[in-house]
Design a protein around this nucleic acid. Structure first.
Lengths: 291, 291
DNA sequence: TCAATTATCTGACTCTTGTCAGATATATTT
DNA sequence: AAATATATCTGACAAGAGTCAGATAATTGA
């Protein structure tokens, strides 16, 4: 039979490589090699340190050096010494470089939006892409500490609130719950961790401290497309480690039976159920863990 | 904001290219260039005519010639003259070539099945891949005439029956419906068309004749992942064209109001509703079209 | 039958990518 | 201050992918 998972996967791989190949072809149309175009794009996307570009594109230093020279001689970028490390250099787009970068962006954006425009269910297509990106990018998921007020963190928090609203019969109103102060989730009192996958936040967790040796775990959320990959365990482990570094010895958390995956996670990872320790109207399960 | 469709698409593209790149790397591990490996794979997948391989991989004839020579000198393939065209050649794997081909297959199959094995919802992942493959492969969908009894056709027909079973309140039993004889859907009486996308069947339609100048359209089906892309219209147009070639001047069809997309399609593409013309228990709408 | 076309092969080239071994200047560590 | 490490640059090279202009032999069409 021809419709086993493997051949379906193959058809997928073939369609995507063809698409990517076609995009590369159009990039080539601007009279520059793909390598140079990639470097320009990396710089345009804010990777200004030469070392950063090299790491991102995984390039040999010699090769990158030549590509940078080429872009410089085309008048697309300027190279200046790094302010704090005179060995290193930082790259910046010139106005000409910016317009060339915009042209590349235009090519890929047009392709992408045409794809969505002619599709009957663009949201389904995007959800499918998220799912696949999470599945394929599993090994490249990183956990970063961030300010809970930065855009990536806020994105996670909003998704979290929206999901609670859908899951709780009564809906969810942040103002009724004891919303942690951002400063309680910033060192030295606490921390906020975001799981990033190829530049997109796909999960978060907060450690809310108050200066003592006890803290609360709050706002554990995983994007639907990344569920089941063991990410919540990774986030919780990272949160515990970070809490320990901050001098915290006891963690507590509250949760709700409308979130059975969460309850199960805590039960199976060393947490003990305890009595209610606050009067927040939403939670109905309370846990504690010594770390 | 960073979570617009474009950046989600980008994250997807990046994760897939990384995956494909990693696969290519492992291919390289067998001590052969990627080009040669691709040619070997194309031959192993049954593309025996050199011309076919060239077209499939979109290679320059000179380049392919050299790659074939290399594979031949490695003892992986044999090249023999084409039986009916002495200019052309056909390639075949030697036993050694077959085992080398199997090794490549093993690499990619292992990767794919590991991906599915560690995913919580492999079916959802596959459905997502199908959806994306259909969306990206739109321009590469071909409509082929096939024997309604060949495996690709049977796959479509079974999916079609299964779907009717789900859609009709009463279920669907092929034996109660007047199932067309295969020979009625083979020239000169009729035809059976299958829409193929990268080697997978994603839709079908039958023209069921009885030797006269009237025929019926039967078994119009589109895979869920390929719906909304205008494929049913393409299939119907192809069916009409083929019917005309077979000397048919009037087409009829029956359908059911549980398939509203179908009813709407016929109403908007030149068909006129007519009285019941058979006593099949399932249909409740009947159409006719002069072509 | 003869001219045009087709399938493949050959040789000569180019470009891009990538590797490697130093060279140079600056930072960091001891 | 000396030794070591780091960031980048330079030159020399090699392999892969791909292009192009003919050459050859077979097939097709007028």
């Amino acid at each position: 039979m021809t419709h086993d998972p493997i051949s379906r996967f193959r058809r997928f791989a073939r369609s995507v490589t063809t698409e990517v190949g076609a995009l590369d072809e159009s990039f080539l149309g601007r009279g520059r090699s793909l390598g140079a175009a990639r470097v320009l794009n990396a710089i345009g996307h804010g990777r200004t340190d030469v070392a950063e570009v090299r790491q991102y594109l995984n390039l040999d230093s010699g090769l990158l050096s030549r590509l940078l020279r080429q872009l410089e001689s085309e008048g697309l970028i300027t190279l200046s010494p790094h302010p704090t490390d005179a060995r290193a250099r930082i790259a910046a787009l010139t106005p000409l470089g910016q317009s060339e970068f915009d042209a590349y962006e235009g090519i890929s954006n047009t392709r992408a939006s045409e794809l969505f425009a002619r599709h009957p269910r663009p949201e389904a297509l995007l959800a499918a892409m998220d799912l696949i990106a999470s599945a394929l990018g599993q090994d490249r998921i990183t956990i970063e500490e961030r300010d809970p007020r930065d855009p990536q963190s806020l994105f996670c928090l909003n998704e979290y609130y929206a999901e609670l609203g859908r899951r709780f019969k009564t809906g969810f109103d942040v103002n009724l719950s004891c919303d942690p102060q951002a400063t309680d989730m910033i060192p030295p009192r606490g921390a906020f961790l975001v799981a990033m996958s190829d530049g997109m936040p796909i999960g978060c967790v907060g450690v809310k401290g108050h200066g003592g040796d006890t803290a609360e775990i709050k706002r554990l959320w995983i994007a639907p497309s990344a569920r089941g990959l063991g990410l919540s365990k990774r986030l919780m482990t990272a949160a515990e480690t970070r809490a320990r570094e901050l001098g915290i010895s006891t963690l507590r958390l509250d949760t709700n039976s409308a979130l059975p995956e969460a309850v199960r996670l805590y039960q199976t990872s060393g947490w003990t159920e305890i009595d209610r320790f606050n009067d927040d109207p939403y939670p109905d399960h309370f846990f504690e863990k010594r770390i």
